[in-house]
Design a protein around this nucleic acid. Sequence first.
DNA 1: GTCCTGCATGGAAGATTCGC
DNA 2: GCGAATCTTCCATGCAGGAC
Length: 272
Amino acid sequence: MLNNSFLHIPGFTIDKEEELWASGVTTWAQAINSDKLDSKQVRFLERSTQALNERDSIFFNERFTARERWRLLPDFKNETAFLDIETTGLGKDAYITMCGILDATGFNAYVRGDNLDDLVSILDEYKLVVTFNGISFDIPWLKKELGPLLNDTSHVDLMHILRNVGLIGGLKKIERICGLDRGDDLSLLSGRDAVSLWNMAQEGEPHALETLIRYNAEDVSSLPKLTEVAYKRNSQGTPMAKHQFLPPARFDTSLLPYDSGLVRYLCRSATK
DNA sequence: GTCCTGCATGGAAGATTCGC
DNA sequence: GCGAATCTTCCATGCAGGAC
């Protein structure tokens, strides 16, 4: 939990934090009542306690690097959204085609030309957003298209916290390493196929949009499990290890329809 | 299939500045 | 003058497109 963390105190290093834990001081309350910190640091921990009580996730977002934000996960797990966008590419004229969001209540798709603009207010409802490579990709894209957002919401980028524990690579590669393989034929699709599906949908191809949404839902639904893995491995050997990040029950993506014929067509095209 | 591109970001390491 | 803090530079990474 956050109140086991001291790394966000200005001037603190991992070594100092480990020293404090080794001395038996593992919580903010213990640290405040000990002689291990100076008065400035004690005031900072009192401010941290207030921020946590006020559910001010931004306070901690700004004080932990991207590699250390896994520490926020258990405290804000009930106010967390898992997010992934699809785009038409990276060029100047490219744009977001859809965004999938998974939370404790289930999966929702926000599609361009329909409800994509709703995202600005939807995202405000969460205290924490989890993405894969969102720091470099999803969030800048969303800000570019929808304007300022996530003003009151922290952001955990799985790519960085998985890298901490030696899990390096793309989302699908890491899923395989963690034994989270997907069973269906949609696992054969790539981001490029998502662009093709969007273009097909624009040309009136039946089922192309629902197949794109299902593809996105598969990506989003693996994020909670990877988050659990990332928390478990990062917290190993620290006082945070006794807590858990239990993700919402895996969303049953098979509830969403898709066209396997389209998937086969795209896979065949890719191998030509 | 492979390699390069453009873009945004974080981290590491070295250089520079600041405070005691 | 020394150590800490801050700034700068370089490299690595993801993503998707395009050329060969």
